[in-house]
Nucleic acid binder design. Structure first.
Lengths: 337, 337
DNA sequence: GTTAGCACTCTCGCCTTGCGAGTGCTAATC
DNA sequence: GATTAGCACTCGCAAGGCGAGAGTGCTAAC
């Protein structure tokens, strides 16, 4: 258990380091924050904090830098709840209402807002159901031996795939098949389709099979992040200025294996913060990730997350992520109830 | 007009510099390529090439480096036609045939192949018609006041948009409206739709308006690159190792304003090479871009391009881009005739 | 418990210095 | 006249040395 003074000290050390990205020294602190004690006292307290593993010196006789544990303590115990300022709330709501009523559009916008406000990378998945249901299915002839299968999901997403035909089919035949399949498959999930025997064959069976496959791969991908913004801002941070580390990061985040980089399942359904070395993936050890899941009606869900250096404005990040998430949940509730 | 020996010299200077990314000196050249003359002679010849502006020294008494003009001369006059090796051709064809018969999938694959073989960034647009035509249109109820509009284009692409309704509509009403709109709009382009008065109103008119808008924005975006692979490889090149330049590049290329970075209209319809300073965008001055347009039946077209440092294996890039483009054209011909 | 004072430790930027690579020129050679 | 050996010269670059500055821990006094 820390004394009150040490808690305050840790707090301002973190504040200062977040601001400057530099190790912070005792004298500078006393000076800048007009502390009622001398730098020597601060040094003693710092030594104690270092003893506890909350701060460290990059090398003898440099200032102190918060450790991962220090940041962890900060977010658990020190961080005060921040609110997104009223006017910004307005702006954000406005942007969402301006945007097309489109799940993808919302996700993109959310990512852009987070990235812009926090000057870091933001990753947002579009809202998906964990188990998508077919709403409507359509077959369109491309030419004799090729058709396009279009599947509309209940959650207003559209999937498509081309379908090779083993004998020529006219548009009329395809339409008829689609009608039949609609009757059989509407409202079903992938697993339901797999269980039932539909009693069809030939081209219709092939189309049904393809539709089920689409549904399955959609379910699998349902937590695959879709929009990433602000990678640029993240890489611009001083901690990544010497290229080598930045490259590794870019590699992990760019190649769509973002799910490896970001744990897609926030534990408590609530807000989740992973700090530096807590991260399982090596390349992300210099970063912290703030993630929240948002949910909508009928099982729609997705995640919002912000990726920044460990030296990141956690309170602001948390507030913004929370707020954007709440706006999205509200919109989902209104438009996709 | 260059003497034969100077041409050969320029050629090996470029070969060597492409290989090592270092300025190349006279002695090293004589040594490595067993030239039948002394380094002094080479120096004289180099002085002449420098006089012509084809090579330059980064600073007094460093080796020579090809200038943009040097590379230009190389690609115009020196570069020998290279072929993609037989076995790789096989592999590529195989990969394309393995892939789903999907325009997007092909574009993604093409980008991946180019990036992997050339170890540079590759940008590929999906095949689009410059003037998309509506094939089929569908309206799906999301809830009372919200419908999903799905538009299938002739070229087997699917567009979607949600549609706010000013009065509640059942799925039956929506289906009826869709039938009516299909009859009116099928086969039309955006501009045709804009010209004609369709004689409809209310919800149907709103849907028609939205569909026309979708078509238009699709036409506008028709040259917007869709797949970018291998940015990582590009940034790993030694010329970008000190972060600052890399950031600028990333900025230009990442933010979907790739069209600014890459001239989307290769002049002769054929192959187009832009070298370093020839590029209009500052951030791209350190890069060369090899672009080709591919075309398919019924006006489908897109571009394939490779972005690398000016020091790039042009002959290999050209050969690969050409080959991949020919494979795509062939596939388009077969499946979308 | 706090603080002034001080010796100590490191990093960082700066300068110098010494290569080494590579050049251009000149004069001799084929 | 082209080629070449020889040589002086120019720079960039890495290594070493040095001083300044920041920051520390410790000690002794308050």
């Amino acid at each position: 258990m820390l004394t009150e003074r040490r808690r305050q000290l840790l707090q301002i050390i973190i504040d200062e380091h977040v601001r400057t990205a530099q190790p912070v020294g005792s004298a500078a602190l006393v000076d800048r924050y007009h502390l009622p004690v001398s730098s020597a006292t601060i040094r003693n307290e710092m030594a104690a904090l270092e003893e506890d593993g909350l701060i460290a010196q990059p090398h003898t006789s440099a200032g102190r830098v918060p450790t991962d544990a220090g940041y962890r303590y900060y977010v658990e115990a020190l961080m005060r709840d921040e609110q997104v300022p009223e006017d910004l709330q307005q702006t954000i709501r406005h942007q969402f209402h301006q945007a097309a009523r489109e799940l993808e559009e919302w996700a993109r916008l959310a990512a852009a807002i987070l990235a812009a406000r926090l000057r870091n990378a933001a990753v947002v998945t579009t809202p998906h159901s964990p188990e998508a249901r077919i709403r409507l299915l359509e077959l369109v002839s491309v030419h004799d031996y090729l058709a396009l299968l279009v599947v509309v999901l209940q959650e207003a997403r559209v999937l498509q795939q081309t379908l090779a035909l083993d004998h020529p089919c006219s548009q009329d035949e395809l339409s008829a098949a689609a009608r039949k399949l609609n009757a059989l498959m509407a409202g079903k999930t992938a697993s339901e389709l797999r269980k039932e025997r539909l009693g069809i064959s030939g081209m219709e069976a092939a189309a049904a099979e393809a539709a089920a496959g689409l549904l399955e791969s959609s379910d699998e991908m349902s937590l695959e992040p879709s929009f990433m913004e602000g990678m640029r801002d993240l890489l611009r941070q001083p901690e990544f200025s010497q290229g080598s580390r930045a490259l590794g990061l870019l590699e992990v985040m760019e190649e769509r294996n973002v799910s490896r980089a970001i744990d897609p399942s926030p534990a408590g359904g609530e807000l989740n913060i992973v700090i530096g070395g807590e991260h399982p993936v090596d390349e992300m050890r210099a970063c912290s990730v703030v993630t929240t899941r948002y949910t909508g009606p009928s099982g729609l869900r997705g995640i919002l997350s912000v990726v920044g250096p460990t030296r990141m404005e956690y309170s602001r990040a948390v507030a913004t992520v929370r707020y954007v998430s709440s706006v999205m949940e509200e919109l989902l509730g209104v438009y996709f109830a």
